[in-house]
Structures are given as structure tokens and as C-alpha cells.
């Protein structure tokens, strides 16, 4: 039991409670930034799972877009319930990841990263060229219902925020438990020495396949949340390669130390983008790029490393004090 309900679990739970409380005070534009952070955070957890094995994907917008487009297409078919849409979005993204996984699990490093990108760009090409798929204009996404309930207008977005927070919470806790399980831990061994893992009797490819499907599912969740939040899907903001880049950006920003950190990373990214956009309308891309550079130079392990950095310093100081004390005692 204690293995499951550890510090991170309680941290995430407190985070969820905090979000739900905050929901009452948030102004609408802040709630909107929060919803987008939750969405991108879910995808970034998927990337984190892959990252622990040393795999980087430059194409997770593929699954993100699949989740988002599933929402739009299901609405055209008449399905309009958030929970049904979530399950459908996860299912399509998950199935796609399952099938692509058979191929992608054979590749590592840059080949893995770019193959993912290639697949996402194929989807982009198909969406942009097919008029019946909305072409570059995409589709509008209508307001959804919640298990059959349609809330009053002013309660709609707060309720959406509650649901998104729960989805993100479940995703994060699930991912955390997975990473702590034998299968999850093993993938770190895969990164260090694949051949040795095979000798121990595990299949590295299968382990990676599982990871890939999980990351696809999480990206699907993110896509569903984003589609409903924004009320619109189009290939340029859902599937194009810079979107995948955003997710990698967030993962680097947050660091891979902890699943909770990805949401902080996503929030910092959203705020950075919003304010860069506001204060430097001609140069906002430069500010984003510059901050990424600074992060890589000064915090190579992401925002989460601030915490361990502080702890290390405290321990160092403590150790120094201890040794000073001991030296003083000896002198005495």
C-alpha cells in the first residue's frame, strides 16, 4: 500500500484539491490557460514515459491530433458527451499507437524521433488535403454534455475544468504507478543496457511497445481536453510539427524527474507564451526560444531539478556543519 501511496501521490492529490478550490476564484482567461496546461501536461507525461527509456518523439501531435479530431468527428456523428468522447479519443489514439508500435519499437534515438514526426506529418498532409476532413480550416467543436447533463452557461467552463483536472489527475497517478512498477522501472534499464535486459529474460521491444501505447493514450486524453477547451480543431494547431515541438519543449522545461512537474512545466510554458505574445508581439518566438536555451544551459534537468538542487545544497551545508562540529569536538 505504502509503495503506491507515496509522496508523489499525495502531492498530486493536494494539487488536484488545490485546483478544484482555485476553480471558484479563477477568471475565465486564467481558467482557459489552466485547461490548456492540463491538456498539454497530459501529453508531456506521455513523452516523459518515453523519455525515461531515452526515447524522444518529435511526432506526438499525431496522437494529440487523433484525440482532438475524434471529438470533432464523433460530434458530427451525434455523440456529444464528454466522457464518451474521452473514451473514443483514447481508444482511437491508443489503437493507432498500438499498430504503429509494432514498427516503432524497433527504432531508437533519432530514428525513433523522426519516424514519429514522419507519421504525424502524414496525418497532417491527409487532413490538409481532404475537404471532407475539414481541410486546413478544420471543424468547430460544440459544447459537450457531462453524463447527459447540460449545465447552465456560466457553469459550463468551471465544470469542464473540474473534469479536465480529474482526467489529468488520473493520468498522472496512473503514469506514476506505472513508472514505479517493475515494468516501468525496467525501461530505465533498457535505456542503460538493452542487451542485458534481454538476458534477464525480458523483452525490451515489448516494454517499449507498452510505453508507446501508454504515451499514445495520454496524448489522446490531451487532445480531447484541448478540442473541447478551444472549441475548434484544425491541422495547424493540432497536428503540425511545431505542436510536437511544444510538447518536447514542455518536457525539457519540466524535467523528467516527476510526473507532477510536467503540469508545472505546461503552466509555465502557457504563461510564458501568453505574456511574450502580449509584450513582444513581433518577437514572441524569440523569447520562447531564448527561455528554452536558458533552461538547457542552467537547468539541464528542468524545473524539477531546482528542488533537488536546493536539497543537495541543504545537505551539503548540513554535512559541512557536521564536520565542523566534529572538528571542533576533536579540538576540544
Amino acid at each position: 500500500m505504502n509503495r503506491l501511496f507515496d509522496k508523489t501521490f499525495w502531492g498530486l492529490t493536494i494539487g488536484l484539491v488545490g485546483l478544484l478550490a482555485l476553480n471558484f476564484f479563477l477568471e475565465e482567461w486564467m481558467r482557459s490557460i489552466g485547461l490548456q496546461s492540463l491538456s498539454r501536461g497530459c501529453v508531456a507525461i506521455g513523452l516523459l514515459i518515453l523519455w525515461r527509456t531515452g526515447l524522444v518523439s518529435f511526432g506526438h501531435a499525431l496522437f494529440f491530433g487523433f484525440g482532438a479530431y475524434t471529438v470533432a468527428m464523433m460530434q458530427i456523428l451525434g455523440v456529444n458527451d464528454l466522457f464518451v468522447l474521452l473514451i473514443c479519443g483514447m481508444a482511437t489514439a491508443g489503437f493507432l499507437a498500438f499498430f504503429l508500435g509494432f514498427l516503432l519499437r524497433k527504432y531508437r534515438a533519432i530514428f525513433f524521433a523522426l519516424l514519429n514526426m514522419a507519421f504525424s506529418m502524414i496525418l497532417y498532409g491527409v487532413l490538409a488535403k481532404a475537404e471532407w476532413l475539414g481541410s486546413t480550416d478544420g471543424f468547430g467543436v460544440k459544447q459537450v454534455s457531462f453524463i447527459g447533463m447540460t449545465p447552465a452557461d456560466d457553469m459550463y467552463r468551471p465544470l469542464l475544468f473540474v473534469c479536465a483536472a480529474f482526467f489529468a489527475y488520473i493520468s498522472a497517478v496512473g503514469a506514476h504507478w506505472y513508472l514505479k512498477s517493475t515494468l516501468g522501472m525496467m525501461t530505465m534499464a533498457v535505456r542503460e543496457n538493452e542487451i542485458r535486459v534481454e538476458y534477464l529474460g525480458y523483452s525490451a521491444e515489448k516494454a517499449i511497445h507498452v510505453k508507446y501505447v501508454l504515451s499514445g493514450l495520454l496524448a489522446g486524453v490531451g487532445g480531447v481536453i484541448m478540442a473541447v477547451t478551444v472549441g475548434h480543431v484544425d491541422p495547424d494547431s493540432m497536428v503540425y510539427w511545431p505542436v510536437s515541438g511544444d510538447f518536447v519543449f514542455i518536457t525539457i522545461l519540466a524535467g523528467t524527474g516527476n510526473v507532477g512537474a510536467t503540469f508545472i512545466g505546461a503552466l509555465v510554458y502557457e504563461l510564458l507564451r501568453t505574456y511574450a505574445f502580449e509584450f513582444a508581439p513581433h518577437l514572441w518566438q524569440l523569447i520562447l526560444g531564448g527561455s528554452l536555451l536558458l533552461i538547457i544551459m542552467f537547468l539541464p534537468d528542468g524545473l524539477w531539478s531546482i528542488r533537488s538542487e536546493l536539497r543537495n545544497r541543504r545537505e551539503l551545508r548540513q554535512a559541512k556543519r557536521d564536520s565542523d562540529n566534529r572538528a571542533a569536538e576533536v579540538r576540544r
Partner: peptide, 18 residues
């Protein structure tokens, strides 16, 4: 208040809301 229209539909929805 003149602002940038680059960045795709999602970005524009967020910006209009802002």
C-alpha cells in the same frame, strides 16, 4: 490593441479570450 495572428486556430482562440 494590435496582436499577432500567427500560430494557428488554437492560439487565436486563446488570444481572443485573453
Amino acid at each position: 490593441l494590435i496582436y499577432d495572428e500567427a500560430g494557428g486556430g488554437t492560439k487565436q482562440v486563446t488570444e481572443m479570450r485573453n
